[in-house]
């Protein structure tokens, strides 16, 4: 169709050049932020930069951290968010404590995770296969699952009495590394490896970035999307189990707020709501950032309530930044 007299104008119209600004800002924002916080924190309080304090920070973030791993998958696959986390956490905690006397703690833990995973399967089917809106669906299933969990225990607080397990979870390996942190690290590393090195992980990115092209490349798109929700539910259940064991008490409200903490962490870490990009290290970086910020505020004596305000402002700020960077980088 083109004849030899074609002249080409040099107008870059379809090439999307990755603006260096976006690339660097996006990669280094969080680590720089963490460093800044470390500096600011140590200035504001001598107790900040101590091993004891920092260890506390990491212990506190372990439970949420496990959930963050799942939530990252959900985000990357463009599943928006999983708001049924409070319910699945509660399921894990409640089941492990109600069943541990009957069948032992570890089997009870497994049951807890499995049942939570079941809730995730329901989410996955509704969202991945029936293509319902993830927000409303996970909200609704969360309520249902929580209700079932409460019905199961008659609406009261469940107590356990396995002090051995409690001490183990709350203790330290070789007297140094807190067990719970170890578990958290194992989950994080496993999650990262799955996301970055396995077929399923690659499919997750592809589905989130361009579901049509991925479908046309013979990838089981619906299964991948559903899987993210199953994973998140199971991980949330697992963290509920850990929580339950460590406290030996579980209220139905035990998981309240974890979904927001997880979402905040993921968003601050720069994982995009639109899917296709991000990673577990980033999400954990975001989590660390938020936890350090919270810690600084606690050390300064700021009561817990304004902390929530800061968190809310953080989410908004992080997303706005992401949107702005995307537009600068030429992507809508």
């Amino acid at each position: 169709m083109s004849d030899s007299s074609t002249k080409t104008h040099t107008v870059s119209v379809r090439l999307v050049k990755e603006s260096p600004l976006k690339r660097y800002a996006s990669a280094f924002a969080v680590p720089i932020g963490i460093v800044l916080l470390l500096i600011v924190g140590s200035i504001l309080s001598d107790r900040f930069l101590t091993v004891g304090n920092l260890t506390n920070v990491i212990i506190n973030m372990s439970i949420v951290g496990i959930i963050v791993v799942g939530m990252t998958f959900v985000f990357i696959t463009r599943g928006m968010a999983d708001l049924s986390v409070p319910a699945t956490v509660a399921v894990g905690g409640i089941l492990v404590l109600s069943l541990d006397q009957a069948i032992g703690t570890i089997p009870a833990a497994i049951v807890g995770v499995l049942v939570a995973g079941l809730a995730g399967v329901v989410n996955g089917l509704l969202i991945g296969y029936a293509k319902l809106n993830p927000v409303i669906t996970t909200l609704a299933t969360g309520i249902i699952v929580l209700g079932i969990a409460q019905a199961f225990v008659g609406g009261v607080i469940v107590y356990g009495d396995d002090t051995a397990a409690k001490e183990f979870i709350n203790g330290r390996l070789f007297g140094v590394v807190p067990v719970i942190v170890l578990i958290f690290l194992v989950v994080v590393i496993a999650g990262h490896l799955v996301l970055s090195r396995t077929v399923y992980g690659r499919w997750t990115y592809a589905v989130g970035s361009n579901p049509d092209a991925t479908e046309a490349s013979a990838v089981p798109v619906r299964r991948v999307k559903a899987g993210a929700f199953v994973l998140t539910a199971a991980l949330a259940g697992f963290s509920g189990v850990l929580l339950g064991i460590s406290l030996q008490a579980a209220r139905p409200a035990i998981g309240a707020g974890y979904e927001f903490d997880a979402i905040t962490a993921v968003v601050v870490g720069g994982v995009s709501l639109l899917g296709g990009s991000g990673s577990i290290p980033r999400a954990i970086g975001g989590l660390l950032f938020v936890q350090l910020l919270t810690n600084i505020m606690v050390l300064q004596g700021v009561p817990s309530e304004p902390q929530g305000m800061v968190k809310g402002a953080l989410i908004a700020g992080a997303i706005a930044l992401d949107v702005w960077l995307r537009r600068k980088g030429g992507r809508e």
Binding site: R202, Y205, A206, S209, D212, A213, T214, A216, G276
Partner: peptide, 12 residues
Amino acid sequence: RDGLVPELTVKD
């Protein structure tokens, strides 16, 4: 729309 996943590398 149907051929490429834009966020992934050539290799991917």
